[in-house]
Design a binder for these strands. Structure first.
Lengths: 193, 193
DNA sequence: ACCGCAGTGGTAGTCACTAACAGTTTGGTA
DNA sequence: TACCAAACTGTTAGTGACTACCACTGCGGT
């Protein structure tokens, strides 16, 4: 509830021009309560990264495939879970809310910075999930390079998705971004296609 | 001078535990003076991105090459300018200072986030320099995906460089990171090698 | 009626950062 | 030397995010 009011106020008046006290008042609670649920003002907007989910998808992929393919397909699949499968044409309320938060995130430096740093944390989780045992620094370096590049491509897809107002399916956009960066074919999700 | 004291204090006591007033006192100036030279506390540490330089290198590359190759070679070249050419074995004072700031940047969330956002601004400049006229949204999307992935690989190289205490040449590490992400051969700088 | 406990609120403080104003130093000019 | 303008520095008084600490309320179980 607090989050809903926050995103609405931030969108209407701007992020910087809206204080946490404003959000608290709109939600009918005290500023203290806001801080109890959301450790920082930025967390009122930022999208849950689902680190756990992505990591599980990574371990589920075949270790025989190239790194960017393993990571890419995991990201595409997690995007499906995020948008709810993407069945019909109309956007669900969940997707609308996601879009509103993404638009704030893109246009507000503080939010954008924190989101990019969250992506960096996700990168660490991906490298861990890839099964890097830490013995070979070159292997870890390779994994970090691949993971960071894949996540950067995904971020580009997120921005494009928000600019498109969600008209294109997010998983498809991510696959397109991966293909644009790494070349066609590397990021196909379903081999039976 | 202010910056030198700031990095030293941040390294000794920690970034969060050091106030801007502390930095000002160590530098023998008032807190206001610090804010006049560095708009935010983070700017006391962050590395100059040299957006202009990278953009010029991009326009100097052949438009016939693949995007990641154009961007990659520009990033490798700008890294040479940043570290000062990398001639001898010993680290220059400039490189030492760069290393200290990088270490802070990697370990401090606020600094890391802002640096990643600076990279995002650099991405915009790279896309602009690539000559995207904005008419075709797919072309722009392609350029953004490639640029973001290249910058992510470069960031990975920066982290590795700091972990290595600068023992490996930074431009070489960036080339290695690009090769790890995009495949060998795509990021070679000098064709005559 | 009693206890524990999760959720909520108040108070006071720290610190990054800003705006408005005032004093000082510096470099160029007559 | 005298002078002026511009750059530099300092003071004060704020705003707002965020924290630590303590008190209060409702609520199910014994």
């Amino acid at each position: 509830m607090i989050q809903t009011h926050a995103v609405r106020l931030f969108t209407e008046r701007g992020y910087d021009a809206t204080t946490v006290a404003d959000v608290a008042e709109a939600a009918g609670v005290s500023p203290m309560t806001v801080y109890r649920h959301f450790p920082t003002k930025e967390d009122l907007v930022l999208v849950d990264q689902r680190v756990q989910l992505v990591a599980e998808q990574i371990t589920a992929t075949s270790a025989l495939q190239p790194l960017v393919r393993r990571i890419g397909s995991a990201l595409v699949d997690s995007a499906k879970a995020l948008t709810g499968g993407g069945s019909g044409n109309d956007l669900t309320a969940n997707e609308q809310f996601l879009l509103a938060r993404l638009r704030l995130m893109i246009s507000t430096p503080a939010l954008r910075a924190k989101h990019l740093d969250n992506n960096y944390a996700l990168q660490q989780a991906i490298v861990d999930a890839l099964g890097d045992d830490g013995t070979d620094p070159d292997t870890a370096f390779h994994a970090h390079a691949a993971a960071s590049a894949c996540l950067a491509a995904m971020h580009t897809a997120l921005v494009r998705w928000a600019e498109d107002d969600g008209r294109t399916e997010l998983p498809d956009l991510i696959a397109k971004a991966l293909a644009a960066a790494f070349g066609d074919g590397i990021a196909d999700t379903d081999p039976d296609k």
